[in-house]
Design a protein around this nucleic acid. Structure first.
Lengths: 176, 176
DNA sequence: CGCACATGATACATTATGTCTCATCTAAGT
DNA sequence: ACTTAGATGAGACATAATGTATCATGTGCG
């Protein structure tokens, strides 16, 4: 049923996720869908709560900070370029009015900035990034434009874009 | 009717915008709503197409580039902190599956980056910004984090955040 | 006044929604 | 192999929503 829900969501948007259509799409009786999720919104919240975080790539170990950040952002962008972008767009449109969806959104999107901040913090402590760097802000500056392109412009996020982003954002804060 | 639609959208989200509820909320017969917008989505598309752009502030004239950018971003953030944030979130959630909403989204969000790029381009030509600056990318770097905070974190965008954003993003590219 | 046009009110058929019952199936324990 | 608890399928049912049609009323305008 959740597979069918994900399919419906990706194909036709959140409004298509109804008890009836989930039942039809998954070959299950309508009553069964009601038993699991009495409220229509519960189906979506359940699906979205189980959705994987937007990226999970463990930052590779000994490489220079620029490489590690670039790798992290690329796996992140790959998820956004795929199905993750649509799911994220749906969540943003729902989270404004549904606290449960917002919680799921927080869980889904918090891991990325966190590991990026950790990466930057590691760069500071190992002396490759300026000490007065605000890791949280720098993380926003790297991730924000990527979301912007995907969600507002519906543009694909290319490796070249990420390279330019990293070099102009992180570049000026690097120490020799 | 469109006022009632806006109210419904802001209060209860896109799914609450139905012929019936618009009719009730605006004190109009249900048939009248059907006459104007035979399809449910038409109501929202019509409303969103008429929505003002996200910011309109004409950049003040002779001030230094940093001041002008900061002013622009502040009026932009003010709209996002208000009702514009919810409307934008709804549009992002709909634009993924509705081309008309996406067109409206483009019109709504294109003016901001454009005037920001123009501002940066002016800064380059008047010699206060480095000549190798990519105005489009710099614009994304300034606007992206603001969208990020509003849409994903549901955080208010403070003047202090914008100040830090401008100083760390635009600062390194300024010429004496 | 007369006309074009939008609206209100209502009826109607169709579909969706939500709840209920009961027979059937399945997995697990005895 | 038997029993039982729990889940499912199939369908009935009432209610609400949706979409269309009709006709009387109102309003602005030449």
């Amino acid at each position: 049923m959740l597979d069918a829900t994900r399919e419906l969501l990706s194909e036709s948007g959140p409004e298509a996720v109804t008890h009836l259509r989930v039942a039809e799409a998954s070959g299950v009786a309508r009553a069964t869908v009601y038993r699991h999720w009495p409220d229509r919104a519960d189906i979506l919240v359940d699906l979205l709560s189980r959705s994987a975080a937007l990226h999970l790539s463990p930052p590779p170990p000994g490489l220079p900070i620029t490489e590690r950040v670039t790798t992290l952002l690329r796996t992140f962008a790959a998820t956004l370029n795929g199905d993750g972008g649509r799911i994220l767009a749906a969540m943003i449109g729902l989270a404004e009015w549904d606290d449960d969806v917002f919680s799921a959104l927080e869980r889904m999107t918090s891991r990325g900035p966190k590991s990026l901040r950790d990466l930057i913090a590691a760069g500071i402590s190992e002396g490759s990034v300026q000490t007065d760097t605000d890791a949280g802000l720098l993380s926003d500056q790297l991730i924000g434009p990527i979301y912007l392109r995907r969600l507002l412009y519906h543009d694909e996020i290319t490796d070249g874009y990420i390279d330019r982003l990293v070099s102009t954002t992180l570049g000026p804060r690097l120490l020799a």
